[in-house]
Design a protein around this nucleic acid. Structure first.
Length: 476
RNA sequence: CGGGGCGUAGCGCAGUCCGGUUAGCGCGCCUGCUUUGGGAGCAGGAAGUCGCAGGUUCGAAUCCUGCCGCCCCGACCA
């Protein structure tokens, strides 16, 4: 196995795979498209999960769990939904050594099984809203898979809420896309465009879909989270009605929303460089890795004693620390390994440092080295963590802004897309126009941002008056 | 499903065209000694149904036939 990772400029896709495999985030499973999430990668997912779960609870949601097996008859109840999902579903036909009377779909998402339960639970407006989230695995038989970004089985959370009015459900849909924006920007340090999907890109079964959309290091777009306003589509399919305050029967209004382990892939591609991963402090399994350097046994014990003191001091301030005193690898090997794994800060201490009462600190994002007096370590690092978190966000934002171009006509559009940019332009086209553009340029409307300019304009493609701008890009 | 490529040690590969002793190399792994401030050195060692099945041949990783699997590009995809 070669030492480093492929350079981004040489082959970005290879770079990504190298970082994920050699950084020990994940490995391939035995079945095509499946993924083993290794402890280091899983720790990153756990951090994302904890942050998200906290926000869900703060917004009034509770967790529950629904079965993985869905009767075939459920899947076929919502026409658009079945059309969208049936081709990519795994189906169980046998159980207990016998052919099943009704095939069971392995959930690709849980709207159907959850709404079949909501039918039992909802009678009156007094039963609403229901604000349930579940953490689960889902299966989609994808043709082309990539670790974290698109795998046959993946982990995610799916919120499924039921409401007594369209307005309330719409408010929930918006509230949750805002939760995702915060998760991406404040926790993962990934800047995102927030807005609405076009009809061509929306969820199968939704009235409309909101999303957060991020730019990766190769300037391609990654859909990082979605929140769907489902209207009464699933309530009608599963006949879920409630008595409103006027004693009238009405179909229930629904939302669903999710983020997945894809976010881990987004994290890799939003911040990584030629040395590997760069983790924002908030998601890093350990924020500081401490590497002792010594030759003689007496140096070793003195250095380790000092370092464990420093480590427990940092831990008392809630900084996650790992001391690597493994003697099998050289310090140089460790430097490279932890850089590949994106640990925010490295601390070194050798005999000379111990003598002088300082340590060496190296920031992963800038590579800058500095000496720190031992009594200043804790305060300095406590202050450094939020600074690094912000710097990473700012850097990603500056990169995205530098590669988002505004255009006024189709030839400019093609040129800018060809160079790999996001394109921002007035848009009044429909599904058909979008398809034409995709055929010619591979780019699609990633999102129609909520944030819009005051002025109206002219659609760059159809020439019609347009009151919205859209963000186009090539996507993962 | 169409086009291209690849299956040889845990990983990455050479050897295949043109059949011929005991199938090599790098990394990793094991043992020992020396090392440790940017992927350590030396010595020794373990590890292979050459993707599977059949055929040709005195002899097959190598030639022939069939099959299986994987990767890349395209189609497809929240």
């Amino acid at each position: 196995m070669s030492k480093g990772v492929t350079k981004q400029s040489e082959d970005y896709a290879k770079w990504y795979t190298d970082v994920v495999l050699k950084g020990e985030l994940a490995d391939y499973g035995p079945v095509k498209g499946t993924m083993i999430i290794r402890p280091y990668g899983y720790a990153i997912w756990e951090s994302i999960r904890e942050a998200a779960d906290k926000m869900f609870k703060e917004t009034g949601h509770v967790n529950a769990y629904f079965p993985m097996f869905i009767p075939e008859s459920f899947m076929t109840k919502e026409a658009e939904h079945v059309e969208g999902f049936a081709p990519e579903c795994a189906v169980v036909t046998h159980g207990g050594g016998k052919k099943l009377e009704e095939p069971l779909y392995v959930r690709p998402t849980s709207e159907t099984i959850i709404w079949s339960a909501y039918k039992k639970w909802i009678n009156s407006y007094r039963d609403l809203p229901i604000l349930i989230n579940q953490w689960a695995n889902v299966v989609r038989w994808e043709m082309r898979t990539r670790l974290f970004l698109r795998t046959t089985e993946f982990l995610w959370q799916e919120g499924h809420t039921a409401h007594a009015s369209a307005a309330e459900a719409e408010e929930e849909t918006r509230k949750m896309i805002e939760v995702y924006r915060k998760l991406a920007e404040e926790h993962l340090a990934i800047p995102v465009y927030v807005g609405q999907k076009t009809d061509a890109e929306k969820f199968a079964g939704a009235v409309h879909t909101y999303c957060i959309e991020a730019m990766m290091g190769d300037k391609r777009a990654l859909q990082a989270g979605t929140s769907h306003y489902l209207g009464q589509n699933f309530a009608k399919a599963f006949d879920v009605k409630f008595l409103n305050k006027n004693n009238e029967l009405e179909y229930v209004y629904a939302t669903s929303w999710g983020v997945s382990t894809r976010l881990v892939g987004g994290l890799v591609m939003a911040h990584g460089d030629d040395k590997g991963l760069i983790l924002p402090p908030k998601v890093a399994p350990y924020q500081v890795v401490i590497i002792p350097i010594y030759k003689k046994e007496e140096d070793r014990s003195a250095i380790l004693e000092k370092l464990s003191q420093i480590a427990s001091d940092l831990e008392s301030k809630n900084i996650r620390v790992k001391i690597d005193d493994n003697t099998q690898q050289s310090p140089g090997w460790k430097f490279n390994q932890y850089e590949m794994q994106g640990v925010p800060v490295r601390m070194e201490m050798g005999p000379k440092d111990l003598e002088k009462g300082h340590v060496v600190i190296v920031r992963r994002d800038t590579g800058k080295k500095e000496f720190l007096q031992t009594d200043a370590i804790t305060n300095t690092l406590v202050e450094l963590m939020p600074v690094m978190q912000k710097d990473l966000f700012d850097r990603a934002l500056a990169f995205r802004e530098a590669h988002t171009k505004t255009v006024n006509n189709y030839s400019e559009f093609k040129e800018m897309i060809d160079e790999g940019n996001f394109v921002k332009a007035y848009w009044a086209g429909d599904d058909r126009h979008e398809e034409e553009i995709q055929k010619e340029t591979k780019a699609t409307v990633r999102v129609i941002p909520f944030e819009q300019p005051q002025a109206k304009g002219t659609c760059f493609y159809t020439g019609k008056p347009a009151d919205k701008i859209a963000i186009f890009g090539k996507s993962y």
